[in-house]
Design a protein around this nucleic acid. Structure first.
Lengths: 336, 336
DNA sequence: TCCATTAACGAAACCGTTTTACATATATTA
DNA sequence: TAATATATGTAAAACGGTTTCGTTAATGGA
């Protein structure tokens, strides 16, 4: 009967039709077959099938305090990193029967706060957070109040929160070793302003290990306003003139801006300078014969976040925080 | 008191402390101040503030049948199109006080079905669907049963569903006019297999309007297995030899595969052939001096989906389905 | 003065489940 | 045989809100 707004069938209808009580139906739904005759069980199955009954998740969660919904907040959904992370989370959640409520904080701590509160209002079972970094104190309170949180990619207090991120240090050693082997004598680091933990950490590592491989000061160049990119690039070229040098970017966006600027300035790689950087986006092996990149384990990060969350949720007691590091992959290409 | 699992404060606590009934608190929460003394109102506000009370969304929705949650299903979250659409949806939902539950169907109709059912179980107020296209009958039933659906970008039955998509035809005319003006004499259309409405529709338009601008048959080339890309490309070059020709791709992925193949075969654009296509991804103005592209209004599509959904939700009666077309933008670059 | 209206609020039912706390019949054991 | 388990159930109380249907007191109009 098309158009007829048939009323939703509830557990009461099923109970009535099957000739048992609501309780028994509820037990059936929750797989508690221990206290149920084979006969009842079959009968219930038939009735549910016949009526097309689907339990109401809200009512379920309200009483049971388990929603099977995972909150996810990404700091910038338009970054190519996010969809991969989300897919990792989504695929893994599916395996565990979880659905995901996604929000985009736009790198605004205020939005992050609001979304977290809103998710708690909705009784999500846990929150996977790619944090803006601007809510440290607030996050502590939230965690303290019992909300399970796993930090994805960007970290704050590693003593207190479960975190999952890439092991940048190892791969940077690997890259430097390779560059040195290729005869490079100096490297300049290009990064956007150090406004989040990932950028800060990579830059620190760069500075820390630079002299294990190269002479002279570890030089860092900041990409701020796009208008200034050209002069920053020229500064780099001047600083490193006279020996074989390479440009190393802190993420894909930085790589992109460098490529653009180099094109504008008619600087060719690998002829005039080497080029390599974090993030391996699909177009990077198309420009100028391919760029040497470090691929991040974004998908795996997503997966591990979920796995860790599941441990948290199912081990009643609060286990000590764990920091999970996942390996990056170096893709050597024509640009170095 | 850190670590203390303080019990969630409920409406009953607020009522007790404010010295009024639950009903009055509920009225306050829902902005029904008409029948409330200024005194009560102020008192309640104070108590809520003091107790840090936040209403439980589940309980709210259970009775009121409004969840303020919008379901969104994308067919492929890793496609560069999806995040932009999602951001459009997300930004607009935020304005209306809605949260979004996102799922990724991975272009599998089975997953799409499951997620839709699951979302209904969770009482989402509506579903914005970037459909796989494989659930037409099922979607009719769902819509018929009262679930509000708006189709994003990919359409099925336009008589029955609200749809939002790009107006490809207009921009294709514009492109052809431009190409003709540049002296191009023939164009070959490169597309992935015609497995969804967008691909089908674009290909149809190509065939339909080709002879308004060019002589000879409208030729379509299919990118199936990557291994065969090279021979397809060579076929194209043979077919169009002898006059000024251009390659036109049906989406960004196709563009990418063409660029890659051309690089492998040492075909240069715009010297050996022109190149242009649907989707304007950020790297496209970096390779080979920039590719002429058609930018899709993905963000706007997301926004319009939400707007349309809001109309649906707030106009009690079912209004007739509406098809919203949004304009694309042609970016002329070096490749043509 | 009496009745109708309205502002301001409350009691209780309800939303659709889960959970708790019994209940009954049958089988097993001391 | 009485007492105890065990299997199979049920009724009713949650869960945390919203909604329905009152009620009371004050006000206005006739």
């Amino acid at each position: 009967m098309p158009g007829t707004k048939r009323k939703k069938v509830t557990i009461v209808d099923v109970a009535a039709k099957a000739g048992v009580s609501k309780t028994t139906i509820s037990r059936y739904l929750n797989g508690k077959f221990e206290y149920m005759s084979e006969e009842s069980r079959q009968k219930i199955a038939d009735v549910i099938e016949e009526l097309g009954y689907r339990p109401n998740s809200l009512a379920r969660s309200l009483k049971s305090k388990q929603s099977f919904v995972m909150g996810v907040i990404v700091s910038d959904i338009t970054s190519p990193f996010s969809p991969i992370l989300l897919k990792g989370i989504s695929d893994c959640c599916e395996r565990f029967g979880y659905r995901i409520l996604i929000a985009n904080s736009d790198d605004e701590p205020r939005k992050e706060r609001d979304y977290i509160l809103s998710m708690i209002d909705q009784s999500v079972d846990g929150i996977i957070l790619n944090t803006t970094g601007g809510n440290e104190e607030f996050l502590r309170e939230v965690a303290d109040a019992g909300t399970k949180i796993v930090l994805a990619d960007r970290t704050i207090d590693r003593e207190l929160f479960d975190t999952v991120h890439s092991s940048d240090k190892d791969v940077m050693h690997q890259l430097f070793r390779y560059l040195k082997g290729e005869g490079y004598e100096s490297v300049g680091y290009f990064t956007q302003p150090l406004t989040n933990s990932t950028r800060i950490s990579r830059c620190q590592i760069f500075r820390a290990i630079y002299n294990d491989y190269f002479q002279g000061p570890a030089q860092v160049y900041f990409l701020e306003k796009k208008l200034r990119d050209a002069s920053v690039m020229q500064e780099f070229m001047r600083d490193h003139a006279g020996h074989k040098h390479c440009l190393f970017t802190g993420n894909g966006v930085a790589t992109m801006r460098c490529v653009q600027t180099m094109r504008d300035l008619h600087i060719e790689f690998p002829k005039d300078t080497g080029l390599c950087g974090f993030d391996d986006w699909s177009w990077m092996n198309l420009v100028g014969g391919g760029i040497t990149t470090i691929a991040l384990p974004s998908y795996e990060e997503g997966r591990e976040c979920v796995k860790r969350m599941m441990q948290n949720l199912h081990n009643g007691q609060s286990v000590p925080p764990k920091n999970i590091e996942l390996p990056c992959t170096l893709h050597v290409r024509h640009s170095t």
